[in-house]
Each structure stands twice: as structure tokens, then as C-alpha cells.
Design a protein around this nucleic acid. Sequence first.
RNA 1: GUGGGUGUAGCUCAGUUGGUUAGAGCGUCUGGUUGUGGCCCAGAAGGUCGUGGGUUCAAAUCCCAUCACUCACCCCA
Length: 419
Amino acid sequence: MIKAITGTKDILPVDMPKWHALEETVRNVFSNFNYKEIRTPIFEETALFARGIGESTDIVSKEMYTFIDRSETSVTLRPEMTASVVRSVIEHSLHKQQGLNKLYYFGPMFRQERPQAGRFRQFHQFGAEGIGSNDPALDAEMIIMAYDIITKLGLKNLTVKINSLGLPESREEYKKLLREYLSDKVELLSEESRKRYETNVMRIFDSKAENDQKIMAEAPLLIEHLDEESLEHFKLVKEILTSANVIFEVDPKLVRGLDYYTHTAFEIVSTSVGSQSALCGGGRYNLLSKEIGGEEIPGVGFAAGMERILLACENEKSFEPKEYESDLYIARLDKSLYNVVIDNAIKIRRNNLIVEYDYNHRSFKAQMREANKINSRFVMIVGGEEYERGETVLKDMSNGEQFTFKIDATTDIIKKITG
RNA sequence: GUGGGUGUAGCUCAGUUGGUUAGAGCGUCUGGUUGUGGCCCAGAAGGUCGUGGGUUCAAAUCCCAUCACUCACCCCA
């Protein structure tokens, strides 16, 4: 018995109403902010992610689905979308056609991690990227859109965390400072953190090891060593969020695991899911386009995990997607009338109504039971004396009332149903 | 990669100190008089007890291995 690959999930018809509801909310909010959808390939040259996201990140160093294709090219299933979107903008010179490109996307992403609650190897994200402006209003807009989508779904128990990672120059200076602070404490750090001391010292703030946290509690914070420009940028972001009524908290220890961030970094976390509590995350990435070989184009964006959001919605029972319904079920009393059923079903379906009938040649009772099961509003009964008179019965399933019509006047039936 | 938990019908689960033909609810199918759903009633189908090995007169039950699922660490959406 072949089963779906570890960490992947079938999204079955019963799951579809909530996915559609989520997608609808996402599209509505993004289009109100005038973002346009973009779709990029599901796999890319490995170098795009390696350089864009950063060799030392967990994603690149141990989580990517990478393989050599038949033309000896190393390709990778995308672990996130930002690098792809920036690549696409540069490749098609979208940034030269207009100053700012406001883009959004949906789709599956792939990371080979151990699955757990709210984490899969194939998972879905929606997200937005604003490419071509360094304005703090755009940073704020990302957070506001993410916040609006999530709150429109009725979710509570949220925290919006923001931080500024500053400019590369001030960050390098700060890293020196941090290394100095840690220089005589390296021996006390966990193994993982000692590695980070060499590769990416700021990430030690992410460590959950008790002793590491104790040491880091006293460490100098980047936010206290930001340059003027970064401080001003951060201040404006906070002001806009405040006037938009987005309640946030500044988390000086929020250091995101992707290399390309500058200035704003943010996350929205929920207490309604498992330990993987980040529903969305993002930030500004003014260095990214240069990193992947283009000119320097400022950008900011975020991505949100759809499975996690739906999990939070279920746990909070925040909304109830509507159940499947159909307009008409055509039942026959006599097997010989199958063709009449088929003809009418096709005619009425072509008039934009949801029509079903029994394909398994079951009893009339079974047909009525099925009509009820699929939530059909009406049943059209074909057969018997009425049929001999050229008529058919239409039953309203909500109250049991029945009406008789000329069978060749299906338009009357359609009117009755839609009216 | 590391640790914990769980694998019995399509689903959710029961199965006593190892002891005959492995159960329930839901779901599915059929029927409850000639042509009418929901509720109710009756009946039926459906299981190599995850897989492989071992202990035993006897294993769903005990032991070992293996796989899968799951939660957590790590990290992230």
C-alpha cells in the first residue's frame, strides 16, 4: 500500500470549504491594498536559495529538497517564496517598469524537517512582497495586512512582535560588540550556540537553552546600538502601526533565521496552536536583490503558514465554513427513465445550477436518502402517472411541499429553484 | 538529527490476570408493502489486530526488531 510521503498531507474535499474561506479572505485583503498576484515555479536553481537565504541558515544547510536533474543542474523545491519573487522581478525588469511592485502569492513550500503539530514537509504559505521602496509605511503595511487577514478570520490570542535589525554597517559593529561581550563566556554556551558564535552570533538570542538565555539576558541589545537612520525608520513603522490600531510589542531578541533582513523584522504568534506558534513572519530585505546578482532594490515582505492559521481557526472555532449544498437532485421511479434524468440534469446544469442524480441504479428510497445527504434544496421526481401525462414533480426538501410541472418545461423548474 | 507516546473495521475507540467464532458507536449498503428524505427500527457487508520474528499447549494481549503516525527538542510558516 503506497501512502503519501512523510510530512505531506492530502487536502480532501471535506477540508476544502475552510481552505476556500481562507483564500477568499487573503485575496480580499491583498486586493484592497492593491497587491497583484504572482506565480513563480515551484522549483528553482539551488543557487538562488543558497545565496538568497544564506548558506549558514538552517533552511539552506539542512532542510532543502535538492536534487540533480537530468541535465546535471542542481535544483531545489522552494522552501519559501521571497527569493523567487525577487528573482522574477529582476528577471523581467518589473522594477524598471514601475517604481514599486506590490505582489502577493499563494502556494506550497517544501522543507525536510521532522513533522509535528503545525509543521509539514510540504506546507502552504500566502504572503506579500513590496519591492522598490524603502519607505517605513510599506513595512507597516505588511504587518497591517497580515494582522487584518488573521483577525478577519476571527483569531484571538495573538501577539505581534516587531524588532529592527538595523543597517548592515551598524549591525556589523554591534556583532563585534556582542562577540566581545561573549568572548570570555563561550565555554559556557551550548554546543549549538558556540557554533553560532562563529557563524551568526545574533542567533544565539534564539537559543532556548536555560544557561544561554541567562548569559544573553545581560548581553548588549542591537536596538540600543542602532544608527540614526534605522532608529528613525523603526520609529515611523511603530507610529503607523499605532495609528492603525495594531497592538504590537517590541521584542529586541527577535532575530529571524534568514540572512537577508535589514531594518524591520516581525512575527505574529498565536497561543492556539502547538509549539510552532508563529503564524506569520517577515521583514525588510534591502540586501537580497544584490545578493542574488541584481542591482540593489529595497524590499519588504512576509509569509504566513496556511496550515497553522487553519489549525488556530479550528482550535478557536473562529469561523464555520459553510457545508456543501446542491440545488437539485433528480430521482426516477423507474429504471427505464435513466435517459430522461440524464437529459434534464445536463440541461439544468447548463443553466448554472448544481444538479446530482444516482449513477448506481439504486432504489427510489436510496435516491431520496442521497438527496437529503447531499443537502439538495429540491428533488425532481420523474416517473409514474405524472410522467405519462408529460409532467414531473418538484419537491422542496426544506418543507416537503411538491409542485407539478410539464417535463419539457424545465425552464419553469429552473425559475422555481432560482426564484 | 535526538527523545517521548500510539498503532484493533472507512472513522472514533473498547477488548478484563495471555484462553474458543475479535466487539461497540458513527459511516456505508439493503429493507421497514404498490411512488417520497431527515427521526426511528431491522438486517448485511467490512478486520492478514501496522509488519517480521520470538516465548507459550495457546498471543490483539508478553519480549525483540522494524515501519508508520504523533508530540516535543532543534528551527521555523
